[in-house]
Design a protein around this nucleic acid. Structure first.
Lengths: 107, 107
DNA sequence: TATCAATATCGTAATATTGCAATATTACGA
DNA sequence: TCGTAATATTGCAATATTACGATATTGATA
């Protein structure tokens, strides 16, 4: 018990949920906003900015990265992430088509 | 430890996270889609439709309802929820302004 | 009022998420 | 190559979420 049942839902519905999950934590929303405002981005700056431990930020970054929302230079001891703008817009469109497809009212 | 730190983030950022959390579970996405397709909505129908226990659906409905996404007749033994279209569109706009405000790229 | 059907709540178990400290890894420069 | 700074990983504890069965509640109707 307790585990989310994925197999009973359509692929589209699960996709929406997975994408929403990325934005469902304030630290990740903060990180995304912060990255989008920088010329280049160094994780250590984010740590000072967001106010969570370095390891915690690193984990959140991994979640964001796995969702495909980052691109850039991941080598070296001072990384330079960027927003993957294409992917980000894909997400926006995904949400919008969900919202638009769900707008029919019943009463 | 383990509890999400809300106080270190701005109100806007927390709001995005709270709203995203509603859509961050496939059952809730399913429920929203289902409701939007019905003339009237009876929870027991949803149970058959979604494939989760009645109590589980009821809990998810509560989450959706607390987010303000439902309106309608909540009295009687056969309820008639509807999507709160205004609120739903508010959410869509919230997401879009977040997406649009975060579109600046760094590299 | 007694019953029934629909929905909500409670209690609990399973799983997931969050966060941190400690440690490991990595790549650069001396 | 050695040290160092930056980032990643690991291990663990705390908390949150998900799900279900059992039970309670609610409102309509006989």
């Amino acid at each position: 018990m307790g585990a989310t049942k994925l197999n009973i839902h359509s692929k589209d519905i699960n996709t929406i949920a997975v994408v929403a999950k990325v934005f469902a934590h304030p630290a990740r929303v903060s990180i995304l906003q912060y990255i989008s405002k920088q010329e280049s981005c160094i994780c250590n700056d984010i740590v000072d900015e967001i106010g969570l431990a370095q390891s915690t930020i690193s984990q959140h970054l991994q979640v964001i990265s796995k969702a495909g929302l980052l691109k850039g230079n991941f080598k070296g001891n001072s990384l330079c992430y960027c927003l993957n703008l294409e992917r980000f817009q894909e997400f926006q469109e995904l949400f919008n088509s969900f919202f638009n497809a769900t707008k029919f009212n019943c009463c």
